[in-house]
Design a binder for these strands. Sequence first.
DNA 1: ATGAAAGCGCTAACAA
DNA 2: TTGTTAGCGCTTTCAT
Lengths: 341, 341
Amino acid sequence: MTVPRRPATMADVAARAQVALSTVSRALNGRPGVSPAQAERIRAVARELHYAVSPAASGLVTGRSGAVGVLLPHIDQWFHSTALAGLEDALRGSGLDVLLYRAESAADRAAFFQSLPFRRRVDALVVIAVSLTAEESSALSGHGVPVVAVSSRIPGAPFVGIDDGAGAAGAVRHLTNLGHRRIAVIRSTNATGSFGSASTSRFAGFRQAMEERKLPVPPEYVVSAPWGMEGGSEAMAALLSSADIPTAVFTESDEVAIGALRTLRRSNLVAGRDISVMGFDNHSMADLMDLSTVAQPVREQGRIGGQMALEAMETGSVEQPETVLPTRLIVRGTTAAPGAE
Amino acid sequence: MTVPRRPATMADVAARAQVALSTVSRALNGRPGVSPAQAERIRAVARELHYAVSPAASGLVTGRSGAVGVLLPHIDQWFHSTALAGLEDALRGSGLDVLLYRAESAADRAAFFQSLPFRRRVDALVVIAVSLTAEESSALSGHGVPVVAVSSRIPGAPFVGIDDGAGAAGAVRHLTNLGHRRIAVIRSTNATGSFGSASTSRFAGFRQAMEERKLPVPPEYVVSAPWGMEGGSEAMAALLSSADIPTAVFTESDEVAIGALRTLRRSNLVAGRDISVMGFDNHSMADLMDLSTVAQPVREQGRIGGQMALEAMETGSVEQPETVLPTRLIVRGTTAAPGAE
DNA sequence: ATGAAAGCGCTAACAA
DNA sequence: TTGTTAGCGCTTTCAT
């Protein structure tokens, strides 16, 4: 495969094909007004020259960049990379590229929301699991660029996600149905030390399910720790040191639950027998660890987010701007009736 | 935060600041020839208007797009997303955006290598863990765009990765040192059904270590399966059905090893006691599963890949074009002497 | 120190 | 059906 040193321009193709520049543009973009024979000839020349349009040049004219931006807090966490894969699935074949905007630290975010660089760079922005302030949310809209929210809502933007509160409540009802009354919860904070919207909703679902059964939630049964295995591990240790150890623990994510399981194991306690543990997400590790959890379709959320972006780009709006995907309780070995042998 | 409906152009800033367009360009790009007071005034106006340069327009002039492309086979696998995070770390603060090119299927690849779209889109291309054919490799170079190889080598391109062969050989020596003589290996195929270069190198390391000890590698001790837990699970089942069950199994990745562990558990065999299992990568699950493995610094590989790309963009070449990061044997519970109780 | 103007590679009128 | 031409929003000479 021999490829010329300088990328071929449309003018090169036109010269080689002995036609005008505009004819090449028409032929390559599949526009009418070019005889089929001519078009085929031009396409052949383009292929031969390994021609690729300059998105910069065409974008300057059309106002479209040919890219979709993705704003996410992390790229190496299971939820985010899985959703991103789903988004890629949806965009595959559309000819659109994916541009990453990582907003992990407060500084990243401030920079992003000051200059809003995506306005010039992308034709749509998909925001995955970023809980925005009201100010940040409003800064996103009003440019020509459609915004889609995945997992965390953005006022005025199409949304795809799950009902975190309902999922959590269902999980806690599973515990109360088993007979648990002393149920603790491990809340998780994000990189900036606060609770994200998913976390907040799941906690609300927990409270609601407890209230339904008139079960008390003493302050020492609500522990917070940084998201992740480490945090889950520490939080469980804190719970084990309380005067009245809970019989069940609800966590906001499988990673946290798995950290909790590790502490249990090290304390010679058996999950499911001595203490029940619930996760959330159905991470691939959950099956492995026999962890009861709430499954959510993550890749699907990304896929639908991508479709919404495509639709918004084409039609200017999204028919079904609110898609709430179902969650599913998965009962495995880490939850059982209290005191069961 | 009020942001104008139409993104401000440089002309808008110039008009508001009562200066010529070119002065704005100079001021915003920190070029000499603008009085400090004027420059500050202009920057203030730009901030006020939430101005962001159009990369398309500036790129058209300068030939630089302000983006780095990343070509990878997956984005939702641990290695790839972790390396990508490292690359992001390196690019943070450079003002460069990251553009994703996913080359999972053969069709994706063919499309990518036909039009080589990155030539116009990005200022550098980082290829993460893609084993290229000679033809593909040569197609990548020769444009003005520097190419960096992470994990899998590309002839002529700066490389960062590990010594897969040495890592694998070390792991197998660990097994032979424990006294194992009947050691099997599970090889992993990728999405296109073939062995990647890392896989090939690790297998070579396995063979070498076995030869050093003059240990035989009968064909039935070399099983191949699709990469992943499922594949590992199946491969281990195949090994357990052989006439002469091995006392140790070397795998090419932790995910595969964990699948193998699952089969062991279901067969009422205990890893480390009945059969030793070695992983590779030191995935976060490895610690959890008490899996012996070979640790490699993945995020660091991505980070260095990003730095190499930056250096190549700035200077045209990379000082240290070959960085081989060390691997580290981590002995955990799944490996022990054969026949030990 | 500042301004005017050419042009980067395309698309989209408008002409022929 | 094809060709000609005016910009898109910038950077970069070249004047001033």
